[in-house]
């Protein structure tokens, strides 16, 4: 092995949810490792449009090819169109990163069915749309890497987190199921488990951040880059025997009882 084995040169990636801090970090890390990287947003809003365009520019300034598209994660046609655009403009699709993060927390009895459905649609169903669309090129070339970003709340519960936890837990176990389904088709499906991370949607309140810093064994939150960069390893050729797994970057949080 040489360290070049970790390189993603000549690979093409699509990062969805590149408007989030972790998604953006993952997209930039994949590009830094040599991949051309297309990016898509989670929501079709002007703010997210600006975020994915900035991300595209950052990738291009590293000398990699990129393209950006503002999509709604829960809109099947949007997702399909972006996968097709990536495939046609970059040539192949080797790596799909799903980094959608629509934060939401409310007591269960206050959640409207509309809210519940939206949280599940964006955070979970959006991943299903993307995996299904990416499967066409990946199955045809008998190789591919799917990497889903999940949070601690996919593994552990949180008061007021019912909808978000259900969606994240859904992504985590979708990862395992799909890993088995495509295990002999050359596609690995894994998750990067994000600990409490700077810039995370649920952590806008600085008092909440302080509370977590005191609690966590490493006494700090993760930087988005520390989480996003793990996608490089899972996306590389040397991670071909890893599938259905979650790589947690969580500063020891899960070792607590």
């Amino acid at each position: 092995m040489s360290l070049a084995a970790f390189s993603l040169a000549d690979k093409n990636a699509l990062v969805l949810g590149a408007s989030s801090a972790i998604g953006r970090a993952a997209a930039c890390a994949l590009a830094e490792a040599g991949a051309d990287v297309a990016v898509g947003s989670t929501l079709a809003t002007p703010r997210e449009q600006e975020a994915v365009l900035t991300c595209r520019d950052a990738i291009q300034s590293q000398g990699r090819k990129s393209l950006a598209r503002t999509i709604d994660a829960a809109n099947e046609a949007d997702v399909q169109a972006l996968v097709e655009q990536t495939h046609s403009e970059l040539g192949t699709l080797d790596i799909l990163v799903n980094a959608h993060d629509l934060p939401f927390a409310k007591p269960l009895r206050d959640i409207s069915s509309k809210e519940w459905c939206r949280v599940l649609e964006v955070n979970l169903t959006g991943v299903y749309f993307a995996c299904r669309a990416a499967a066409d090129p990946m199955l045809a070339q008998h190789s591919g890497r799917i990497i889903n970003i999940v949070s601690l709340l996919g593994e552990r519960g949180m008061i007021n987190g019912s909808a978000y936890c259900a969606a994240q837990g859904g992504v985590l176990n979708l990862t395992r199921a799909l890993a088995l389904e495509w295990a002999r088709s050359g596609i690995t499906v894994n998750a990067v488990g994000a600990g409490w991370t700077e810039g995370m949607g649920l952590l806008k309140d600085t008092a909440v951040q302080e509370q977590l810093r005191r609690y966590l064994p490493q006494k700090r939150l993760a930087q988005p880059s520390e989480v996003g960069e793990a996608a490089v390893y899972l996306a590389s050729d040397v991670a071909g025997f890893i599938t259905g797994q979650t790589v947690w970057l969580e500063g020891g949080a899960l070792s607590h009882l």
Binding site: P217, Q218, A222, E226, I242, V247, L249, G251
Partner: peptide
């Protein structure tokens, strides 16, 4: 690359 990974299993 794994500085924030702790107590975990790969």
């Amino acid at each position: 690359l794994s500085n924030y990974m702790n107590g975990q299993m790969l």
